[in-house]
Deep mutational scan, measured.
Amino acid sequence: MSIQHFRVALIPFFAAFCLPVFAHPETLVKVKDAEDQLGARVGYIELDLNSGKILESFRPEERFPMMSTFKVLLCGAVLSRVDAGQEQLGRRIHYSQNDLVEYSPVTEKHLTDGMTVRELCSAAITMSDNTAANLLLTTIGGPKELTAFLHNMGDHVTRLDRWEPELNEAIPNDERDTTMPAAMATTLRKLLTGELLTLASRQQLIDWMEADKVAGPLLRSALPAGWFIADKSGASERGSRGIIAALGPDGKPSRIVVIYTTGSQATMDERNRQIAEIGASLIKHW
């Protein structure tokens, strides 16, 4: 067993022997300050990975656009099909120029040879490739089937209704393509630590998230040396920005953090900075 597999395998073990964890309200002060700075709603939740206990939250049951954070859930659904023998990570999918949508930095380079399901999930999570996400959605039956998968997991909140890039419209009070911080955190925890996926698939999912290449300005920018993070960011219209992450010190994840914001007129750089500052406060008061 590799060191990485050993780390994931021990998560349920540590759950039975973990020391108590305590929240620090200073982080919530920073979350509220971020709302003021951005002139927008901010949703935040911090969940103990082992016990599932909510350590701190702000607007945990308000809806926010999922943006590209849905791609982790999508690849979780794909992996569940792999575990059930209904899909193969090595299966090659061919597509055409007509399938390409905006922001497809990986898939646009493989029009001649296609990409495997594994490569598409990697592109969707690590590079947030939109065409990769659409091709993967097709393999499971579309957005409604992803919503059904989540319902079967016990998540009756999170929903995907449209494809890339339309799902990023982020219209106020529109429940399409939205989640709540509490629902997303719970669902992510189930995918990473529960029995829904095999150990190999849980490890694959967290490996893809750990290799995320487009979330550098967010929580990763505040991460001390030696800390672990596996994450997925998202951005969409109407000043929306978000990130879902499993992180912790000593090279292993111990908490789930979900941050969403929407309705801001601030620049992308400012939205990134506010999320990074929330992360810095979280780490300082860990």
Rank of each mutant, 00 (worst) to 15 (best):
S2A: 12
Q4S: 12
Q4G: 10
F6G: 06
V8S: 15
A9G: 13
L10Q: 07
I11A: 15
P12Q: 12
F14Q: 02
A15S: 15
A15G: 15
C18S: 11
L19S: 14
P20R: 08
V29M: 14
A34T: 05
L38S: 05
L38W: 05
G39V: 09
R41G: 02
R41V: 05
L47V: 14
L47A: 08
L49C: 01
L55V: 09
E56L: 03
P60T: 11
E62G: 00
E62A: 06
M67A: 08
F70C: 05
V72I: 07
A77E: 07
V78G: 00
S80D: 09
R81A: 07
V82W: 05
V82N: 03
A84C: 07
G85V: 04
G85T: 07
Q86E: 13
Q86N: 14
Q88H: 13
Q88S: 14
L89Y: 05
R92G: 04
R92L: 15
R92A: 07
D99F: 06
Y103Q: 07
K109M: 10
T112P: 11
D113G: 11
M115V: 01
E119R: 03
A123G: 05
I125G: 00
L137V: 04
T138K: 15
T139A: 11
P143L: 01
F149Y: 11
F149S: 06
N152D: 15
L160S: 06
R162W: 01
W163H: 06
E164K: 08
N168G: 09
N168P: 02
A170E: 12
P172R: 08
N173I: 08
D174A: 03
E175K: 09
T178N: 01
T178W: 00
M180L: 08
K190L: 11
L197A: 01
T198D: 10
T198E: 09
S201G: 09
R202V: 07
R202L: 02
W208L: 03
A211Q: 03
K213F: 05
L218Y: 02
R220N: 01
S221T: 11
A222S: 12
L223A: 06
W227M: 01
D231Q: 04
A235C: 03
A235D: 02
A235S: 10
G242A: 10
I243N: 00
P249D: 02
K252Y: 11
K252G: 06
Y260F: 12
A266Y: 05
M268I: 09
A276V: 09
A276Y: 10
E277D: 09
L282V: 12
I283Y: 10
K284M: 13
W286R: 00
